[in-house]
């Protein structure tokens, strides 16, 4: 039954269904049960934001609290994956990658290649990303580009509940290591989600809104900011197409190129920092492979090259806004070939 559920519940449901389907699926992380060994409820927390709440009651020992030892348990998940399990390790915040990165990028990412194709490492590392929680510099980052840089890793960042369930199910069934990035500000976001299990293939962007005047490429929370911008632009008779990349590695270049072929104008939105980001990656790819289709230079809307600030006054300025995205679309329409002609043409 399709019903409206939150992204948080969709993630919980995907894990639940896969644990039912496949006995090799296990889940570990700090507080994912949340109470092991404590005098109170055994599963008091179910994750720091309650995403895995209720799963312990259903699956018992297949959910494991861990000591605060990201290297050890993320590495253990990777080792177990190489030994035939399908572990999900929760790295509470992506910002904590610094204390376990070796196991991810030198071990999980490289086993297959380094061992001549003889090892599979079907591990999923679920991790919270993104700003807007007033959580400051070490709990708010969008570090996706660090992972997309590494061959051997797949990187996923859903923007809604439906995609989250289908992409997480695919991540768990996938034979490669997957970094599954959950935007903490989207956990409450609801959409229609079938109760049954389903998968969304990797490398398939979602055109969430069609338009002929400009292409906005985004992922995660930024998809919603891009849609805000598109709504505002529609009132000015500018039709923006919004592409949700959904997976960042692999990335659906075809959909981006096809869209830019239709619109001639590109705005890439990324909550990551401006240098060496998904934004620069998409802009460079389009510049190299579809230069002829571009009627103006690509515009990038990103977070600034600063740590994430704490004060709400500053953090709100830090996060790319719908207004900034709309302004970038207006800039691209006002420059290059056929500048300003958009309105007449429409």
């Amino acid at each position: 039954m399709a019903r409206k559920i939150s992204m948080k519940d969709a993630i919980n449901e995907a894990i639940d269904l896969e644990m039912r389907r496949d006995p090799t699926v296990i889940l570990m992380g700090e507080d994912v049960v949340g109470g092991t060994g404590s005098p109170g409820e055994a599963d008091a927390w179910g994750g720091v934001l309650g995403v895995t709440k209720g799963l312990y009651a259903k699956h018992g020992k297949r959910l494991m609290d861990t000591p605060l030892s990201e290297s050890a348990y993320v590495g253990a998940a990777i080792g177990a994956a190489a030994c035939g399990m399908r572990p999900i390790a929760e790295l509470m915040f992506i910002d904590f990658m610094g204390v376990c990165f070796d196991e991810i990028f030198n071990q999980a990412a490289k086993f297959k290649y380094m061992f001549g194709g003889k090892a599979n490492t079907p591990v999923v590392i679920r991790t919270m990303v993104g700003a807007g929680f007033r959580a400051a510099a070490q709990h708010s980052q969008m570090l996706t580009p660090i992972f997309t840089h590494i061959p051997g890793l797949k990187v996923v960042c859903p923007s809604n509940a439906y995609d989250a369930k289908g992409l997480l199910t695919q991540s768990i069934r996938d034979d490669d290591p997957v970094i599954f990035c959950e935007h903490k500000n989207l956990y409450a976001h609801e959409s229609d989600v079938p109760a049954e299990a389903y998968t969304i293939p990797f490398g398939e962007a979602n055109v969430v809104r069609e338009g002929k005047d400009a292409t906005i490429v985004a992922y995660g929370l930024m998809v919603h900011k891009a849609l805000e911008a598109a709504d505002a632009l529609a009132k000015e008779k500018v039709e923006a197409e919004v592409i949700d990349l959904r997976t960042l590695s692999p990335i659906d270049w075809d959909t981006v190129i096809e869209s830019v072929g239709n619109t001639g104008r590109l705005v890439v939105v990324d909550e990551a920092h401006p240098r060496c980001s998904i934004a620069t990656d998409v802009a460079a790819y389009v510049g190299q492979n579809a230069f002829g289709a571009l009627r103006a230079g690509a515009q990038m809307v990103t977070a600034p090259h600063t740590p994430v600030p704490f004060s709400p006054a500053l953090e709100d300025l830090y996060i790319p806004s719908g207004g900034a995205i709309a302004a970038a679309v207006r800039r691209t329409l006002a420059s290059g070939q056929g500048a300003g002609a958009q309105r007449k043409a429409s």
């Binding site: 590495g75 253990a76 080792g79 399990m85």
Partner: peptide, 16 residues
């Protein structure tokens, strides 16, 4: 780096 991996191997064996 192998120590966590061995823990994973032990964990897998324990589940199996």
């Amino acid at each position: 780096a192998g120590a966590p991996l061995a823990c994973g191997a032990g964990l897998a064996a324990k589940f199996r």
